[in-house]
Amino acid sequence: MVLYTIGFTQKSAQQFFELIKSNNMDMLVDIRLNNKSQLAGFAKGNDLRYFLEEICNCEYQHCIEYAPTKDILDSYKKKTISWDEYVRQYIPLMQKRNAVQKFAERFAKYMAVCLLCSEPTPEYCHRRLLSEMIVADYPAITVKHI
């Protein structure tokens, strides 16, 4: 499996869907806490599901179990916690939720899975943290941040 990660902000709909299609992704896993974002109209949950199926022949699932809690996310956005503290809270949360094993069980049948969040780059995004946790347990998986 190739595990991609992508953020939709700072991308046009054309750029976003061409990346999905050109990398032959067959499953996009939306790991945002809220998939009704106003940041980009094409990235709203039900619309996104439709566009992915019609344009890219790609399935869609919104999986909030891979998202941070509202408290963690709000604290980071309001700068009451640092990125390092965010990481210290997010990783144990994923361990408690058994996120990596659930990911492997749910998505093993796919060849190209993509983790979606809003951040334009992976450096300060939970999609990178989750992908690193997955690869640590399943080293045969290759990660590509696009």
Rank of each mutant, 00 (worst) to 15 (best):
L52W: 01
F107I: 02
I81N: 15
P92E: 14
A40C: 10
R32L: 00
S118Q: 14
R32A: 00
L3S: 08
L39W: 03
K11C: 09
S118E: 13
M1P: 06
A67T: 07
A13T: 09
A104M: 03
L130E: 03
N35R: 04
F51H: 12
D30N: 04
P120W: 06
I64G: 08
K70R: 14
E18W: 02
L93Q: 13
F17T: 11
E18I: 07
A112W: 02
E132S: 10
S37L: 10
E132G: 04
P68C: 13
V2Q: 05
N46Y: 00
I134L: 03
Y110W: 05
Q10K: 15
K96Y: 07
Q10D: 12
W83E: 11
D74Y: 11
T80V: 14
L19Q: 13
L39Q: 09
T142V: 10
S118T: 08
N35K: 04
A67I: 06
K96P: 01
M1C: 05
E119P: 14
E18F: 02
L52N: 05
L73V: 10
A104K: 06
L130M: 08
D71Y: 07
M27R: 00
T121A: 14
N34K: 10
S22R: 10
I55V: 07
R88W: 06
E132Q: 13
H126T: 04
K70N: 11
R88N: 15
A43C: 04
N23Q: 09
Q14W: 00
M27W: 00
K70W: 06
K79Y: 06
L116H: 11
Y110R: 10
A104Y: 01
Q38E: 05
L33M: 12
E53Y: 00
D26K: 02
I134A: 01
I55E: 02
Q95I: 14
S37F: 03
A140Q: 13
C56R: 01
N23R: 09
A112Q: 12
A108E: 03
I6V: 10
